[in-house]
């Protein structure tokens, strides 16, 4: 089923979509992690509530409010969220205290906020949304499955507005584990390392991107998700073949492709097969120099596109990998996180 995106909200390591200058300047850093540059939440969250929120909840609520504002709605009919790691910071707070205090004299606040569905639950609570509410936690497909769930929900319940998001927060603990696991780099990276480097692991990231999606074509310009193709594949050659087969098999007309190129050597080999193969004559764009590598970064990339389209902007020049697209009507978003691959087929309508 086709989904139309009518509102976008992003909080990321490259800033937030409520900011006029969002993504306009090329990023500049030398770091092992791109943490969220958080907005002033005054317009979005009452201060009393804000004080009690962990970062995951703040960036989740913040991006969802921006997105609803952009779409011009007060509350969605249903909510679908993807998060690979959930509310890690509160999980670690409770875990740390539980061990340090030998399971005694513990307080509930961190535990309450540690559950994976805290963000979707808090959004429902703040907006008074009694509708369908789901949280997906399938690693690099968490956001993709939240979108597939949106297709399923709107097929059964047409003419509704669904809030859909991808969110993950980075902690010191998770960063260390991700470095040991080879996903993120121990050394610092600059933007050029993400775009052109060939290193072991990529710069770490986190972020929150939310969307209002509906099954009805809106009167104003919007991006339509025509299809989401998601699969797992450990062998990069096979993965590239599968994607190529999907693109050719569906005779997709592609003006531009957004690639999750991260500078990681294994990942580069995958993207190189596509860049010199099926996308050889296609304009190619990157996004991970902005948000870093994390499991739900495809939501950030989708948000970059929908946010730019809604504001009548072109994609920033610092995202161009080969040549700028003359038209941005038919766009593919191709990403992978470890062996979790996905391809969003997008069209400006």
């Amino acid at each position: 089923m086709e989904l139309y995106i009518t509102g976008t909200g992003i909080v990321s390591g490259a800033g937030n979509s409520g900011d006029e200058s969002f993504l306009k300047e090329a990023p500049s850093y030398n770091t092992d992690k791109l943490l969220c540059i958080e907005p002033d939440y005054k317009a979005y969250i009452p201060p009393m509530q804000l004080r009690r929120m962990s970062k995951a909840v703040r960036i989740g609520i913040g991006a969802s409010k921006m997105c609803m504002e952009a779409a011009g709605i007060e509350k969605p009919d249903a909510i679908s969220v993807g998060t690979a790691m959930g509310c890690l910071a509160d999980t670690e707070v409770f875990l740390g205290k539980m061990i340090a205090q030998d399971e005694q004299m513990l307080t509930p606040t961190a535990f309450i906020q540690s559950t994976h569905n805290t963000v979707s639950g808090q959004i429902a609570l703040l907006a008074g949304c009694y509708g369908h509410n789901l949280t997906y936690v399938q690693r690099g497909h968490s956001f993709e499955h939240a979108v597939i769930n949106t297709q399923l929900y709107l097929a059964d319940n047409p003419h509704q507005q669904m809030l859909v998001g991808g969110i993950d927060e980075l902690t010191d603990g998770s960063l260390e584990a991700l470095k040991i696991g080879g996903i993120n780099r121990r050394e610092n990276s600059a933007p050029a390392d993400v775009l052109n480097g060939n290193t072991h692991g990529a710069v770490a990231g986190e972020g929150s991107a939310f969307f209002i999606m509906t099954d009805e074509k809106p009167a104003i310009t919007a991006i339509c998700i025509k299809d989401v193709y998601a699969f797992t594949e450990k062998d990069i050659v096979t993965a590239a073949e599968k994607l190529t087969g999907y693109i050719n098999g569906n005779s997709l007309n592609v003006d531009a492709v957004m690639l999750g190129q991260s500078g990681d050597e294994k990942s580069n080999a995958f993207y190189q097969l596509l860049r010199s193969g099926v996308f050889a004559n296609t304009s190619q764009y990157a996004f991970k120099h902005l948000c870093g590598e994390y499991a739900t970064s495809s939501a950030f990339a989708l948000g970059m596109l929908t946010n730019a389209n809604a504001k009548g902007e072109v994609l920033p020049s610092h995202c161009v990998l080969n040549n700028e697209a003359s038209s941005l009507k038919n766009v593919l978003l191709v990403n992978h996180y470890m062996h979790y691959h996905s391809c969003f087929v997008l069209q400006v309508v």
Partner: peptide
């Protein structure tokens, strides 16, 4: 540690790959 990894381990063991997901709503 990740919830999705639990599902992935089991799905791989039984050779299921067409659609594999994990839901966590308490």
């Amino acid at each position: 540690h990740e919830c999705g990894t639990i599902t992935e381990l089991v799905a791989n063991h039984f050779g299921i790959s067409d659609f594999v997901t994990t839901i966590s709503t308490a």
